[in-house]
Simulated assay, not measured.
Amino acid sequence: MAKVCSIRGSKVRVGRKIHRSGLAKKKGGIGRHVTKTVKRTVSPNLQTKRIFVPELDRYIRVKLTAKAIKTINKNGAYATLKKAGLI
């Protein structure tokens, strides 16, 4: 299954990790230098949750990021899921 949040649409992003070599000037070296960059993926903090919606009187299973869970706590399950088009 895709690593995508059902509410916010957050998905895996691609970034780079910097490789450096050399000794820092503070430590008596000639300074640090970037030798190469390596691609890496940054995954969202996804959780699979079963959320009870009192208005529908049933549970809905969704894949959410931690930030989306906070949004549901703040705005309510029904309003948030309806806005996202899941209900």
Score class of each variant (00 low, 15 high):
Arg8Leu: 15
Arg40His: 13
Lys49Ser: 02
Val38Pro: 01
His19Arg: 15
Ile72Gly: 01
Ala66Leu: 10
Ala24His: 14
Ala66Tyr: 03
Asn75Ala: 08
Gly28Ala: 05
His19Cys: 11
Lys36Ser: 10
Gly85Pro: 02
Lys74Val: 08
Leu56Trp: 13
Val42Ser: 12
Ile87Pro: 04
Ile60Tyr: 04
Ser10Thr: 09
Gly31Pro: 05
Gly15Met: 06
Lys27Val: 11
Gly31Lys: 14
Gly31Arg: 13
Gly29Gln: 06
Lys27Arg: 15
Leu56His: 00
Leu64Ile: 06
Ile72Leu: 03
Leu46Gln: 04
Arg13Ile: 07
Thr48His: 04
Thr41Tyr: 12
His33Pro: 02
Gly31Asp: 13
Pro44Thr: 00
Ala66His: 06
Val14His: 11
Ser6Tyr: 08
Lys25Met: 10
Thr80Ile: 02
Lys11Thr: 11
Val4Phe: 02
Thr41Trp: 05
Glu55Leu: 00
Asn73His: 03
Val12Pro: 00
Arg40Lys: 15
Pro54Val: 05
Leu64Thr: 03
Thr35Cys: 07
Ile7Asp: 03
Arg32Leu: 15
Cys5Trp: 03
Ile18Gly: 02
Lys39Gln: 07
Ile72Cys: 00
Gly31Val: 04
Ile60Gln: 09
Ser6Val: 08
Ile7Gly: 00
Gly29Pro: 08
Lys67Ile: 07
Ser21Ile: 15
Leu64Cys: 04
Val42Ala: 10
Arg8Ile: 15
Lys27Leu: 13
Lys11Ser: 06
Arg58His: 08
Ala24Thr: 13
Leu81Arg: 05
Ala24Met: 10
Lys74Gln: 11
Met1Tyr: 10
Asp57Val: 05
Lys25Pro: 09
Val38Ala: 07
Lys17Met: 12
